[in-house]
Design a protein around this nucleic acid. Structure first.
Length: 402
RNA sequence: UCCCCUGUAGCUCAAUGGUAGAGCGGUUCGCUGUUAACGAAAAGGUUCGAGGUUCGAGUCCUCGCGGGGGAG
C-alpha cells in the first residue's frame, strides 16, 4: 500500500490539526512525537518500552545504518522494522543532516540552531560537490559516498515507511547568497531523489530550506509543494522566534492535505508553538540525549518555560528525594523508581540510569503530543498550551523529602 | 630500641633546587533530522610542623609528628 495522510479534525482558532498517517506497518495518529533511533535503536530504550509508552514510529538514520551494519543486511532480515524487532512504522532520515553535522557544522563549530557560544571549529569530515558528498567515515575513517540516488537506494533497502529526500543543510551563519546557493543544490538533489525513488509503499518527504530568509523559505516551500506529497521542514535557523516565523512562511505556501514533519525539533515549547502553526510530526534526539546527560523532563508547575521543562537528576538536592521524576507521570520509570535511586544510579554511572531516564523522557514527549492531539479533537488546544507555557511561580522542583 | 621508605587539592598521584600540576570526585553551565553513557567552565593548596643551608626549598640538612615496612 501507498502511505496516506488524512486530517481528522482541525483546530478552530489555530492551524493545529489532528490526523492519521496510514502506512504498511500501521497507523500514526498525529500530532506525534517520533523518537530518534539513529542506529536502529532508540538509545537505551527497548522496543517493548516504546510500545508500552505509546510511541508509534521510530526514526533511524541512513548514513549510520549504511556504515553499519549495511542496508543489504537489513534488507536480508526483512527490513528495519523487523530487524529491530519493532514491527510498527519506521522512518529514515536521508543522511542529509550528516552532510551538515560532519561538514560545515564541524567547520563552523555550530548546530543548525545558532547558540550563544559557538563550539570549537574542527576540520570537516566530508566534501560536497554538485554530484554528491564524499564522507570520511566517523567510525573507521574509510571513504564513503552519498548522493540523492545512493541515499534513496539505501533507504529503499532499509525499507522504512516514511523516508526523506537527500538535502544539503545550510549553516545558520550563511548569508543570503550562501544560503541561496545551498538551497539550489538541495532543490537539484530533491528532484534527483524523486527520480531515484521506486518503492510506492514508502512515503517520500521533501525537505524545505532557506535558512532564516523569508524569500528563500517561501521559494523552497512552493518548490516542495509542487513536487512532494509529504513535506519535512528542515534547514537552519537562528533562534526559536526565527523558527516559528519560518514555519509560518512555509505552512502558508504548502497544501493543507500533506503531512508536515518538523525535522529535529522537539523541546516542549517548540512542540506547542509549531503544532499551533500546523506541524504534524516531530523527531528529536532531545529526550534520549539529555536523558543520558542526566536531565529529565518535568511537567507544570515544576517544569516551566524558565527551566525549559528539564531538571538535572545529578543535583545533590535529589539524593534523598522519595518522589518519582514527575508526580503525574505514568511511565515505567515514574511508576517504579524514586529520584533518590535514579540519582544514585546516575552518579554511579550505572547503565540502568540512562535507560530509565531516557524511557521517562521519551514517554514524556510521546505523551505530550498525544495529549495535544486529544485537546485538538476537543478543540481545547489553546487552553492546554496556556496551561503549559504560562510563567510559573515555581522555578525549581518541589522536593519529596520526608 | 634501631634501620629503611613515606607525607603535595576531597581521593590517587606528578613536579633537574627556578611561576605547584594532572586524573578522578565535588560545583556550575550546556546539549533540538546523535561523530554524543557527552562536552565546557570555574573552584579547590600555609606542599605535615618547627628550624636551617641557598639569590631561590615541595625538592637539600636537623629535630619533631603521622603512616608503611624491616630488624631485634
Amino acid at each position: 500500500m501507498t502511505p496516506t495522510f488524512k486530517i481528522i479534525l482541525k483546530s478552530s482558532k489555530t492551524k493545529a490539526r489532528a490526523g492519521v498517517i496510514k502506512t504498511p506497518h500501521g497507523d500514526i495518529e498525529t500530532p506525534a512525537f517520533i523518537p530518534v533511533g539513529t542506529n536502529g535503536t532508540v538509545k537505551s530504550v527497548s522496543p517493548r518500552d516504546l510500545k508500552e509508552m505509546g510511541a508509534q514510529v521510530v526514526l533511524a538514520n541512513t548514513y549510520h545504518l549504511h556504515l553499519r551494519p549495511g542496508e543489504d543486511l537489513i534488507k536480508e532480515f526483512g527490513g528495519l522494522s523487523k530487524f529491530m524487532s519493532w514491527g510498527d512504522p519506521t522512518m529514515t532520515d536521508s543522511g542529509g543532516f550528516q552532510v551538515f553535522s560532519l561538514g560545515v557544522g564541524l567547520e563552523h563549530g555550530v548546530g543548525k540552531l545558532l547558540r550563544e557560544e559557538e563550539g570549537e571549529a574542527k576540520p570537516r569530515l566530508n566534501k560536497i560537490t554538485k554530484e554528491g558528498v564524499t564522507f570520511q567515515s566517523h567510525i573507521d575513517g574509510s571513504k564513503q559516498y552519498l548522493s540523492p540516488e545512493v541515499s534513496i537506494e539505501i533507504q529503499e533497502k532499509i525499507g522504512a515507511d516514511l523516508i526523506v529526500a537527500f538535502d544539503d543543510l545550510e549553516s545558520p551563519k550563511y548569508n543570503h547568497e550562501e544560503t541561496k546557493k545551498s538551497l539550489e543544490l538541495t532543490e537539484d538533489w530533491l528532484i534527483r531523489s524523486i527520480k531515484a525513488h521506486k518503492r510506492k509503499d514508502q512515503l517520500l518527504y521533501g525537505v524545505t530550506h532557506g535558512g532564516s530568509f523569508k524569500d528563500l523559505r517561501i521559494k523552497s516551500a512552493k518548490f516542495n509543494d509542487k513536487h512532494f506529497n509529504a513535506i519535512a521542514l528542515g534547514g537552519a535557523h537562528k533562534n526559536k522566534q526565527d523558527m516559528a516565523k519560518i514555519v509560518e512562511w512555509t505552512i502558508a505556501n504548502i497544501s493543507e492535505n500533506k503531512p508536515r514533519h518538523m525535522l529535529g525539533i522537539g523541546e516542549v515549547d517548540d512542540i506547542f508553538e509549531l503544532i499551533e502553526r500546523g506541524i504534524d510530526t516531530f523527531d528529536c534526539v532531545i529526550p534520549t540525549r539529555i536523558g543520558r546527560t542526566g536531565f529529565f523532563f518535568a511537567s507544570p508547575p515544576f517544569g516551566n518555560i524558565k527551566n525549559r521543562f528539564r531538571m538535572d537528576i545529578a543535583k545533590s538536592k535529589f539524593a534523598k528525594d522519595k518522589g518519582p521524576l514527575a508526580d503525574d507521570c505514568l511511565c515505567y520509570t515514574c511508576q517504579n523508581f524514586t529520584r533518590a535511586y535514579l540519582y544514585h544510579l546516575f552518579r554511579s554511572r550505572e547503565l540502568l540510569a540512562y535507560s530509565l531516564i531516557s524511557t521517562h523522557n521519551v514517554h514524556f514527549l510521546v505523551n505530550l503530543t498525544k495529549q495535544i492531539r486529544e485537546a485538538i479533537i476537543k478543540d481545547k488546544f489553546q487552553s492546554l498550551k496556556k496551561k503549559w507555557l504560562k510563567k510559573s511561580k515555581f522555578d525549581s522542583a518541589l522536593l519529596n523529602v520526608s
